[in-house]
């Protein structure tokens, strides 16, 4: 059990939550882990909230459906309302504080505020807010290495989009700093 890690990415459609989850899944697979990425699908995909779950394990993964995940990366307020209470006791909640001005008010989990959009804008594009969040999560949990994460991002984006890659790397660095603080504290 201890070898399995679960995380939900949730936000508005268009915030890149699916992409962030997929990149994590690709990276974990590259590192030889068992992995599942499972999206919510259906009408809520079209304009409403979007979410996906990533499960990473050293062993064969049982249930792909995770009702009480260990961690959640929450990009908007409706998603916090939906997932805030589901996180496992002792789990980790990352909140995009650029768009969410409240907290979960839970004292049995670790809660971290990540101003994803502000950081993203600072490094060059609001579109990389998802990468700030992903980096913070990866740094906090050590679920995969940044080396592989960067490798997979480069592979997925293609090396031709150099400028975009640079911005993504910067987003990684900023997110990583925030995440590392939690890891050091924890």
């Amino acid at each position: 059990m201890a070898t399995q890690k679960e995380v939900v990415f949730a936000g508005f459609g268009g915030q890149g939550v699916m992409t962030a989850g997929q990149l994590l899944a690709y990276t974990a697979m590259e590192e030889g882990k068992q992995v599942i990425w499972i999206p919510s699908y259906g009408p809520e995909m079209r304009g409403g909230t979007a979410n996906c779950t990533v499960v990473v394990s050293d062993n064969r993964i049982g249930s792909p459906v995770i009702n009480t995940p260990q961690s959640a990366c929450i990009f908007n307020r409706p998603s916090l309302d939906r997932f805030g209470a589901t996180i496992k006791k002792g789990g980790l909640l990352l909140i995009n504080s650029s768009l969410i001005d409240i907290t979960s008010e839970r004292d049995d989990i670790t809660e971290v505020l990540v101003p994803c959009n502000d950081i993203a804008s600072k490094v060059g594009s609001a579109r990389v807010a998802n990468m700030v969040m992903l980096a913070a999560y990866v740094a906090a949990t050590d679920i995969v290495s940044f080396k592989t994460l960067k490798k997979m991002l480069t592979e997925k984006l293609g090396s031709r989009k150099k400028e975009l890659l640079e911005i993504n790397y910067k987003a990684f660095d900023e997110g990583r700093k925030l995440g590392k603080k939690i890891a050091d504290k924890g």
Binding site: Q22, Q34, V35, I36, I38, Y41, P64, V65
Partner: peptide, 10 residues
């Protein structure tokens, strides 16, 4: 079931 179609695995 729908999950088999929707989920990503290696």
């Amino acid at each position: 079931d729908g999950m088999i179609g929707q989920m990503m695995e290696s």
